Simulated assay, not measured.
Amino acid sequence: MDGELWDVTDAEGVPVGRVHRRGDPGFPTGLFHIVSAVCVVRDDGRVLITQRAVAKDWALSWEFPAGSALAGETSGNAAVRELREETGLVALPESLELVGRVTEATALLDLYVAHGVRRSTLTLDPKEVRDAAWVPLAEVRARCEDGQMAGPWVERLAVLWDALVRASKVARPYPQ
């Protein structure tokens, strides 16, 4: 959303004591903000992907639920919040496993895997998400190859694919 405040971080993701308002020009050169994403894995091995709303950039492309961490928010907490806001699914920060980080022009993208997310009906935020699908992980790769995934996700998954495959196969019980 326009107007949200992000912590500005160094290349390691450590806040440098500044914030930047989303949508404002002049993001500081050589610095970053945190973007968190989560790949939810069901017990049957299928993963959740969401289709971006028509009004968003990369409209109607597919992705994992994701968004920017707000000022003062950890990467894991941002992943949990974004998942809940976009899909209605509830995960606990301690249920997340960090797959890896990708450095982009002004963002550090952290991808997490969440196993054992409590069953819940998907409740999609229409401002963010048009549709959702539970698919085999191999279908995510196929969607990258045929142009259905949002462009940034093609590059991200090229870097993180092997780690994502490993993390998605290791089931962890949902913390009580």
Results as ranks from 00 to 15, higher is better:
2 D>S: 12
1 M>S: 11
1 M>F: 09
56 K>M: 15
26 G>E: 13
159 V>Q: 09
15 P>V: 05
73 E>W: 10
93 P>N: 04
109 L>Y: 09
110 D>H: 15
80 V>A: 11
107 A>R: 14
56 K>L: 15
115 H>N: 12
43 D>V: 04
82 E>Y: 00
158 A>T: 15
90 V>G: 00
161 W>A: 00
143 R>K: 11
44 D>P: 09
145 E>S: 12
62 W>N: 01
97 E>V: 15
158 A>R: 15
17 G>A: 10
138 A>D: 13
151 G>K: 13
112 Y>E: 04
77 N>R: 15
162 D>C: 02
6 W>G: 00
11 A>M: 03
106 T>E: 13
93 P>L: 07
35 V>F: 02
108 L>F: 08
50 T>G: 03
40 V>H: 03
70 L>S: 12
151 G>Y: 13
99 V>I: 11
131 D>I: 09
53 A>F: 10
62 W>I: 07
136 P>G: 08
29 T>N: 05
111 L>T: 03
175 P>M: 06
25 P>Q: 04
83 L>T: 06
4 E>K: 14
59 A>H: 14
170 V>Q: 09
108 L>V: 10
41 V>D: 04
151 G>W: 11
93 P>C: 05
57 D>M: 05
132 A>Y: 06
126 P>A: 09
33 H>V: 08
162 D>Q: 14
41 V>W: 10
39 C>Y: 02
166 R>W: 08
142 A>I: 01
120 S>T: 06
32 F>H: 10
38 V>M: 07
122 L>I: 07
14 V>D: 00
4 E>N: 09
169 K>T: 11
64 F>S: 04
147 G>D: 08
1 M>Y: 09
100 G>A: 10
53 A>D: 10
171 A>G: 02
165 V>G: 05
96 L>C: 05
149 M>T: 01
109 L>C: 01
2 D>H: 14
13 G>L: 07
100 G>Y: 05
85 E>M: 05
1 M>Q: 05
143 R>N: 01
154 V>A: 12
25 P>V: 09
128 E>K: 15
90 V>T: 10
102 V>K: 11
154 V>T: 14
77 N>W: 12
51 Q>K: 14
3 G>L: 10
53 A>P: 09
166 R>D: 14
125 D>C: 12
46 R>C: 07
22 R>Q: 14
153 W>L: 03
32 F>I: 01
18 R>L: 15
142 A>F: 06
42 R>Q: 13
54 V>C: 08
141 R>W: 15
35 V>M: 07
128 E>M: 15
161 W>E: 00
118 R>W: 02
126 P>M: 02
42 R>F: 01
9 T>C: 13
94 E>S: 11
107 A>G: 11
115 H>I: 10
151 G>C: 06
91 A>L: 01
165 V>K: 07
15 P>F: 06
87 T>G: 04
145 E>W: 08
99 V>G: 06
176 Q>T: 06
127 K>H: 13
38 V>Y: 07
139 E>N: 04
123 T>L: 13
68 S>F: 03
11 A>K: 10
71 A>F: 05
153 W>Y: 13
171 A>F: 14
89 L>H: 01
135 V>R: 01
162 D>K: 08
104 E>Q: 15
145 E>F: 04
166 R>N: 04
125 D>N: 15
176 Q>D: 11
152 P>Y: 14
133 A>R: 12
